[in-house]
Design a protein around this nucleic acid. Structure first.
Lengths: 246, 246
DNA sequence: CCACATATGTGAGGTAACGCACTTAAGTCT
DNA sequence: AGACTTAAGTGCGTTACCTCACATATGTGG
């Protein structure tokens, strides 16, 4: 739809100079990681890029470092909703590990950055080998299911400004940066509300000095405040994502 | 909350005399099934029974035959929402297979019937053995994630009567029976709407001669009509659940 | 600098669902 | 039979969000 080319300032606003690494891969024993390394390739993901469409053969699986991938579902051709968010705590393309070659959701790059890419064939091989990667992918699967479940509840019950706050916090956690390019139009597809609804919600957050935004660039001014404004879902999802990594 | 004891007429209204079996276990090669059999025990699940609470240690994993288990999430102490439904196409307690000992959702028996029960310890052993069960549980994980994702979208966008129609169809598919005991109060917790909302939606369906209900007993009168009334989400979820079983 | 595209703000009218307070109906218990 | 409990229907004011139709910015390219 709008896979528009976007700014190449993906590193702008990075919180610190430390290179972000995929935390899931980072849990692996050195030996196992060394074995996987030849199969991993670092790639740049750009905002708006589609990694795979629903039903498409998934060619690669992506372990984000400082990028973010949104898993989104379509409804009736016009509306969209993000059902899951994947950052350095996880992997996009889990279906392949599960022995399925496609996914019913679309994987859309929602935050520019780098990711480690592995071919689906290599992932399938790894899926048939017990060990560290196998185990951590299992635990991540559970974590992702928990995230999607909690988001489902959140999308059903909570007000748009609270959900926007949660979403910004989750993005901030994964992107590392406190400033990122995102239009309200884009956000409306993530939250499953009209653009005008995002406008209103964003105004509320800006009025509270929690964020600042202008023409597709959002800056987080007050994380604490955002956490207070967001629903408990943020903490619940974060807790689940943090603990599975041990 | 209301774990009220319920009627023992769980077999009433069964569509046909054929004993329902868990389709997931049914895909296993005879040899593997024979190996698992000693670890499986047939148990009766009764409407309202809680198999595990959020955070609880999960002791057993359940492969429903003709029973149904709802996975539900709590919001702010008062509201509930079903995030997933498990029948003979799946298993309740997948977290154990994923190497996690508890789940953030509550597993509530939503349709009485039998299930095959396996201890968590046995499941953990099986999880570390590649083979048929391992593979099918992988594919089921993907299917469940798809279901939860699609439900999330559905809960966000679709009208209560369409969602009720979908829910009744999904229950009908899993329970086999065209008649089942369920109060509107119970349904309101599944759909995440007020009891009055269920009352209104159910009236609409009854006015269209699609269902009949009275004091906690619902009868499906016109499946075709229900399918027309429900949103496309029903077909999408069903397709995903049917194909993963090959 | 000016046209133009894109991003955002706003207001009016509509609606599905909520919250609340009831009533009505259908079983159950003694 | 009568009291009681539980299930379900109804009406009303409120609300968050939607739909639609604009107005107003803020960049960008010729």
């Amino acid at each position: 739809m709008h896979t528009r080319s976007l700014q190449n300032d993906s590193l702008k606003g990075r919180a610190n100079g430390a290179p972000a690494v995929n935390r899931l891969l980072d849990t692996l024993p050195k030996k196992e990681y060394a074995r996987l390394l030849p199969k991993l390739k670092s790639v740049n993901l750009v905002l708006g890029e589609v990694l795979y469409e629903p039903g498409d053969l998934i060619r690669y699986v992506y372990f984000p470092n400082d990028s973010i991938v949104s898993l989104i579902s379509e409804v009736s051709g016009t509306s969209w909703l993000e059902v899951g968010m994947v950052g350095n705590e996880g992997v996009a393309g889990l279906a392949v590990f599960m022995g399925v070659s496609s996914s019913p959701t679309r994987a859309l790059v929602q935050g520019s950055g780098t990711a480690m890419r592995m071919s689906s064939a290599a992932v399938r091989t790894e899926a048939n080998r017990l060990g560290g990667l196998h185990d951590i992918l299992h635990r991540y699967s559970h974590s992702l299911l928990a995230q999607v479940s909690q988001s489902s509840v959140c999308n059903r019950f909570h007000l748009v400004d609270a959900r926007l706050a949660r979403w910004l916090l989750m993005t901030n956690d994964r992107l590392g940066a406190g400033e990122f390019p995102l239009t309200q139009e884009f956000l409306s597809n993530m939250l499953g509300v009209r653009r005008e609804g995002v406008s209103k919600a964003a105004s509320i957050l800006q009025a509270g000095k929690l964020i600042r935004y202008s023409r597709g660039l959002i800056t987080i001014l007050n994380r604490r405040g955002l956490e207070a404004k967001s629903c408990r879902c943020y903490r619940i999802i974060k807790a689940e994502a943090d603990t599975y990594l041990n």
